[in-house]
Design a protein around this nucleic acid. Structure first.
Lengths: 221, 221
DNA sequence: ACGCGCTTGTGAACGCGCGCACAAAGTCAG
DNA sequence: CTGACTTTGTGCGCGCGTTCACAAGCGCGT
């Protein structure tokens, strides 16, 4: 054990791998921090930030400790510094390309949603398979035909599927074919992707059904 | 302990309490089952249904066993029967009232989203604080002013908040005041509700940020 | 300079959920 | 009627995530 007790003795930082549950909460913290920064707050305690983020304070401290120790004991966390650390970790420092496919009701809503831009995740391109849509201006962008996909995708692009369920798999395949390795699916269908592609889904109706379950439970209690 | 070893010896059914993780997957199964039913399939194995739902087959069997045993060994599950069992458990049998507040981009998309109606969860009322919107027709419904809230809420109603973040807490309080005990929040903000109110949130930008993290990770690997 | 009080960072215990692997149970052919 | 095959239902072990509780660390007042 004289020379190689540890695999990487030169990197004492603990952010080898960040738990998925922590990653899912970082955006919450980031949002709360931006609000605090806008109010002029310079320092925040884990207790206060946890309250503003809607989580437990011990959990928050453990989460933040995953990306290295950026707090000062007895004082708290520096708001600005923490924002930059979390942003960097999430890859929001340099702007990330987002390509949205499907400009129906939901697609338009997503295109106009301000929440993206304020986090460095503005949508760069709008695509649709319907040529009747092509050329239309939505949220300051011109809708292009899906055939132009290869021209708008750059390495590291994130694809967003907001098409009807019937077209989702086809669009998904096109995105994968164009080199996209991260896809967010809003269509209510299960998509098949290669193992190296990250796929996340948001089904608006599922959340309502879960609420329905709990409401139903209350009514028969 | 001679007379009361068990709390409820008369109810052998095992659906005392259904795990939250299972509840969250029931809508997935339901969707897959509806697709199968439309194709004319009458019976389905756990393996096939799991595949169609995008989950592990053992997990699916365990989930379904939570609501009682509705499968036949050697055969599988009866599609129609399973649909009705899951629907009943989720409280979708008798139509559930949904009140949507905020008819901006996202609100309009939700109002027109077909995924709700097909699951017995049609939106019943559209409300907005902006009187300029009042009277407008969206997806076959007339937008009413938020002041009419008490007139459209019935016991068991689910409230959906699709307003800007700045108005969300105020609208939330109004909903709670009107007797709503289940709320789905799309506004990117943390809401405070009494303990007896169920609150779920969907933040569209969080999912993108999580993808951004993974994409970022890939790029520096 | 020194100790007091505040806040972070984390060790440890607990509980939940996942998935394997198998026994129980039902079907179907002969 | 019997035996072989199929599929369900579940016991069990494992790993992740959450939470408590406390020691370590830092600033500030005196």
């Amino acid at each position: 054990m004289t020379t190689s007790e540890l695999a990487e003795p030169r990197t004492p930082r603990r952010r080898e791998v960040i738990p998925e549950a922590t990653v899912a909460r970082l955006p919450l913290y980031l949002r709360a921090l931006h609000t605090l920064a806008d109010e002029g707050t310079q320092t925040v305690s884990s207790e206060a930030l946890a309250e503003a983020s809607g989580v437990n304070s011990a959990k928050l401290r453990k989460d933040l400790s995953q990306l290295g120790s950026y707090g000062t004991r007895g004082v708290g966390y520096d708001v600005t510094h923490l924002i930059s650390q979390i942003s960097r970790e999430l890859g929001l420092s340099r702007r990330c390309s987002v390509v949205l496919v499907g400009v129906g009701n939901l697609g338009r809503a997503l295109a106009g949603y301000g929440g993206f831009a304020s986090r460095g995740l503005a949508i760069d391109a709008l695509l649709d398979a319907d040529r009747a849509m092509t050329g239309e201006q939505i949220a300051g962008m011109t809708v292009r035909h899906i055939d132009d996909l290869a021209q708008v995708v750059v390495p590291g692009s994130i694809g967003v599927i907001a098409t009807p369920a019937s077209a989702a798999q086809e669009v998904c395949d096109l995105l994968v074919g164009a080199g996209v390795t991260s896809i967010l699916n809003f269509a209510p269908t299960v998509l098949n992707v290669p193992a190296d592609v990250d796929l996340r889904k948001v089904d608006l109706s599922i959340e309502l059904q879960i609420l329905s379950f709990h409401e139903h439970r209350k009514s028969l209690a």
